[in-house]
Design a protein around this nucleic acid. Structure first.
Length: 99
DNA sequence: CATATGACCAAAC
DNA sequence: GGTTTGGCCATAT
């Protein structure tokens, strides 16, 4: 297991329920500025594990980028009170996780 | 081993 | 200002 993933997962676990973050923000907080891609890959590797709240991570436009289970992600977010529109987009001004 | 691709983003043009 | 271009790192082939 690549060590960098643990730092990324640790940050994702810090995202409060009902809030969302972006790949870039997670990368920055994990100590990998500008390496949003690494975050995407790390979450990709989870393949649906629920010990990390991967569904709270969206791309910088607030859109669900998940290629595997986009509908599941929407369901999980809405269960926490996060509104997701028909285009799988969230209002970042309202739900973005402020550190 | 070299190339390609990906749940991305900031800067450059 | 929208669009293109690099760059970053881990897997896959």
């Amino acid at each position: 297991m690549s060590s960098s993933y643990e730092a990324i997962y640790a940050v994702v676990r810090r995202i409060p329920a009902g809030r969302v973050s972006s790949y870039g923000q997670v990368a920055l907080l994990a100590g990998y500025p500008g390496q949003a891609r690494l975050v995407g890959y790390a979450l990709h590797m989870l393949q649906g594990r629920i010990d990390v709240p991967w569904w709270r991570v969206l791309n910088r436009l607030g859109v669900i980028s998940n290629a595997y289970e986009p509908e599941l992600q929407r369901t999980l977010l809405e269960r926490e009170g996060v509104l997701v529109n028909e285009q799988l987009q969230v209002d970042l001004k309202q739900f973005r996780w402020e550190v």
